[in-house]
Amino acid sequence: MAVMRAARLDVRTRTLEVTEVARPVPGRGQVLVRVKAAGVCLSDVHLIDGTLTPRHLRGDVVTLGHEVAGVVEELGPDVAGAAVGDRVTLQAGQTDRSGRVLTRGVDYDGGWAEYALADEATLVPIPDNLPFDQASIIPDAVSTPWAAVTSTAAVAPAEAVAVWGVGGLGVHAVMLLRLIGAAPVIAADPDPVARDRALAHGADAALDSTADGFLERIGELTGGRGLAAAFDFAGVPVVREQALRVLSPGGRLVLVGLTDKPLEIRDGTRFSYLGQRVLGHYGSEPEHVVQLVDLVGAGRLDLSASISGTCPLEEAPAAVERLERRTGSPVRLVLRP
């Protein structure tokens, strides 16, 4: 029996262990991908600390990793659109026959391993000039903010926007908002390293959201109009309270950061009179990943600065700890099995 190394989470004890497991064999319509890079996401941290729990996992142990890129190694029966040697990134999830949305590395085994199984429909070809580490983070780290910006918020050119929380997803939101022509693009974060990074990635201004006069400064930057779209990537109640206070008439508050805390709209009459909206957002659709791969391939989007470090699979627990503690304020750490 062929074996491989994989970083497996026991959801009963929330313990992560790099161990030896059987190498999977592709079934009908599946391919086996030799993993070249796999991103470490805050969602992985939350799975380990118990904040998140898989809803559709069969069993109690799962290989983590929903951001995956690699090379097609083996084809299962009835695979027609892929070939051995293809360079691919993988969609972060898929829909099963019953219509349930399943997430890779959560509801079924992911890419923190030497090899990963993938349905043919989840393969996204990547060009030769796109490095595997950058390709791996496009599903989720880049596609989630891209979908939030272009689909959920439907931001138009010259609209004033702000991003609260410019970490692994928020900094990409800043880049993408600038790409589509939003103006001004304001970043808000208490971390000075994150603020400097936001400026380097295209923010017109980067503000400390805990500073006195923070909301007044947003008013000045928007010429008193307020924000057409405010994005919460922090998942913190105070962020949502701040954003609601500086929305323009017709403004949208988009909730991307996850939290179980309630959202309070204190002046419902004003909110309704101004036609403002609160929009929930989660993940992305397959076309968003394809669009981003095309944009990178066309030279419109550079993700090279998004890779804060790489490490071997054996160091997965250390990478999780580094991300959890925000050591060095990383955007994305990448495992190389």
Rank of each mutant, 00 (worst) to 15 (best):
I48S: 10
P54R: 14
V320A: 14
H56A: 08
I186K: 01
F214C: 09
A183Y: 15
P54F: 15
L215W: 06
P184N: 06
V185W: 03
V84F: 05
E314Y: 14
D232V: 10
A200M: 08
L16G: 08
Q30W: 00
P262T: 10
G85P: 05
Q276W: 01
E314K: 14
R325Q: 03
E73Y: 08
V79H: 05
A116T: 11
L279T: 03
T144M: 04
D109T: 09
S151A: 09
L244T: 06
S209C: 12
A38G: 07
S98P: 10
R325H: 07
D232A: 14
Q91S: 09
R8K: 11
G165E: 00
G223T: 11
L303W: 07
A83L: 09
G168F: 08
R58I: 00
D109R: 11
A200Y: 07
T310L: 04
R34C: 05
G299Y: 03
V40H: 06
V142L: 10
S98V: 04
L47T: 09
V35H: 12
E67Y: 05
A156N: 11
P77V: 04
R245E: 03
V31W: 14
V290K: 11
V142A: 04
R104H: 03
P262N: 11
G309V: 09
V33T: 13
R55S: 15
L253H: 07
